[in-house]
Design a protein around this nucleic acid. Structure first.
Lengths: 107, 107
DNA sequence: TTGACTCATCAACCCACATTGATATATACT
DNA sequence: AGTATATATCAATGTGGGTTGATGAGTCAA
């Protein structure tokens, strides 16, 4: 068990929740190449304008993406810090899982 | 953009979905210390027996935990491989996010 | 100012899923 | 056999959230 002072599971749950939708993951994939405007995302994703806006809002509220306005366009980009949070948590769990011994109860 | 031949977003979405519930994350935290029986988990989690069983099933179906029967007890443990999958994906995205330049559209 | 364009928000719908309580299954003990 | 324990499954309920279409707000061009 690596030292990991109980990462706030509420925060983690929120991050995982935002990433749990296939369309939102598709958006993340598209943003891996860099900042994109909504109009560009819309071409690449099978979703109406309203739905895309909803998913972007969901990602933004979780802190997974940042947005920026420029004229009539809105640009979205990935927030590296959020993924670092997730990576840290998951890596810790993986390490523990790899080194976990036998049963710890009901002996 | 690191080479990452489009990790199956469906699989990732399923993993994230299973991790998107706070009670399930609590279960994961408990399993970080090693294999546990359901009876042990039940004491530590604010959930009825039926609900706990449901969440364990959800985690199992996503491949996040493994189970083992021994007499009338069921033992659950973390599946390190699943977390390695998630870690690989998230780490890739984080790297891209950190090195992403400016806008790629609407020039 | 008018209209076209980009994006967000709202209202309504529907479905997946978390939750609960009851029942079923399987094992152990007497 | 019968009873107690451990866990899973089933049925029913309620709610969150994904989806859609329409409307609103802001920006640019003519």
């Amino acid at each position: 068990m690596t030292t990991w002072t109980s990462a706030p599971t509420g925060r983690m749950a929120k991050l995982f929740r935002a990433l749990s939708d296939e369309k939102r993951l598709r958006i993340v994939e598209l943003l891996r190449g860099g900042e994109r405007c909504v109009c560009d995302l819309q071409e690449a994703i099978d979703a109406g304008q309203s739905l895309l806006s909803f998913h972007l809002k969901t990602l933004k509220e979780a802190g997974i993406v940042d947005d920026r306005r420029e004229g009539r366009w809105a640009f979205y980009s990935l927030n590296a810090e959020a993924f670092a949070e997730v990576e840290g948590f998951v890596a810790g769990v993986r390490q523990d899982a790899e080194s976990s011994g036998g049963s710890k109860c009901c002996g």
